[in-house]
């Protein structure tokens, strides 16, 4: 029993980090450009194909250089998309922006089929095998997901908090006019943000390749659940998105203990609906409400 719980915890946390990465990836673009990138699902898939199809199979690169090259290619693709679509659309109405990103997803989808075909690809000897942790058998890919995700989150925090480019990104997300008045090139900052976001998409594709295999629908579910993670955490807030992702991953995994496993996905979406109905501003909102309540009760005690 203990082993089962540990197994569920590890795979739940791993998937939670995947959802968290998805939430981070689209929150970055939401904060910088004010638009929801509905094409992110296809970009994750594209990342998987670039990594396995091009870098591993066609170029025959070893794993690490293949990952680096794939991430760089996706980041460059991100800059192009930012310049052609996201930046010009930043001031347009929401509907136009939504339609544009959905269509971009379709174009990418067709492009992927055109370039790599509609076959599923499986990287060989990549993040495969199992390891024993405290008597539980855990797939190595889950362990790698957890480690890599923590590194990405730490690096991203460092970039946003400590580097000049990252601070500029934060300013652009808070107030674009004021940012430009500080001498920040807002468009360049947006393009860098999109490049980072697409790079993270690529890493998600790489990390989940051994679990889902690289195919057209590999990221449909994680893209949707990443969206749930953002809603549960609190939209537009990076730490909250991470918390939302982890909670979602663990809860849905343990729900599998009680409910039939086909209901696993239902749990995630039901959780999102509950949050939308009762806590529309997510965990951040709940935290704020509790803080307000404590402050109020303290004031009452004093008076």
């Amino acid at each position: 029993m203990q082993a089962v719980i540990l197994q569920l915890a590890v795979s739940g946390i791993a998937m939670g980090f995947v959802y968290a990465l998805v939430a981070i990836e689209y929150t970055l673009i939401w904060n910088a450009c004010g638009l929801l990138n509905f094409s992110h699902e296809k970009i994750i898939t594209m990342g998987g194909y670039v990594f396995v199809g091009t870098c591993l199979f066609q170029l025959g690169l070893p794993n690490i250089p293949a990952i680096v090259l794939a991430v760089i290619l996706l980041a460059i693709f991100g800059i192009a998309i930012a310049a052609l679509i996201f930046i010009p659309l930043r001031n347009s109405t929401r509907l136009i922006a939504v339609v544009a990103t959905v269509m971009l997803g379709q174009v990418i989808n067709e492009g992927v089929i055109l370039i790599w075909g509609s076959v599923a690809l499986m990287p060989k000897n990549f993040l495969s095998g199992v390891s024993q942790i405290l008597g539980a058998t855990v797939s190595k890919s889950y362990v790698y997901i957890i480690i890599v995700s923590i590194i990405i989150i730490a690096v991203l925090q460092f970039i946003l908090k400590k580097t000049k480019i990252g601070k500029a990104m934060t300013c652009v997300s808070q107030n674009k006019t004021a940012a430009s008045l500080m001498g920040i090139n807002v468009k360049v900052s947006m393009a860098i943000t999109v490049a980072i976001s697409f790079g993270i998409c690529c890493i998600i594709g790489v990390l989940t390749a051994p679990i889902f295999t690289v195919k057209q629908q590999m990221s449909t579910m994680i893209a949707l659940k990443g969206f749930c993670a953002g809603v549960i955490g609190g939209f537009g807030n990076l730490p909250a998105a991470i918390a939302g992702g982890l909670i979602l991953g663990v809860v849905e995994n343990f729900a599998g203990l009680i409910l039939p496993s086909v209901f696993k996905d239902v749990v995630a979406f039901a959780l999102m609906v509950v949050f939308m109905l009762f806590f529309p501003d997510g965990l951040v909102g709940v935290k704020n409400r509790i803080q307000k309540h404590i402050a109020k009760s303290q004031m009452e005690k004093l008076s």
Binding site: K167, Q174, T177, A178, L181, M182, I184
Partner: peptide, 23 residues
Amino acid sequence: PEGRDVFTKLSVEDNLTMGAYSK
């Protein structure tokens, strides 16, 4: 600018640092 437009979610210190961004 009118209405100050400070970065509300950054600390006072970071706001000042951002002021020096161009130099």
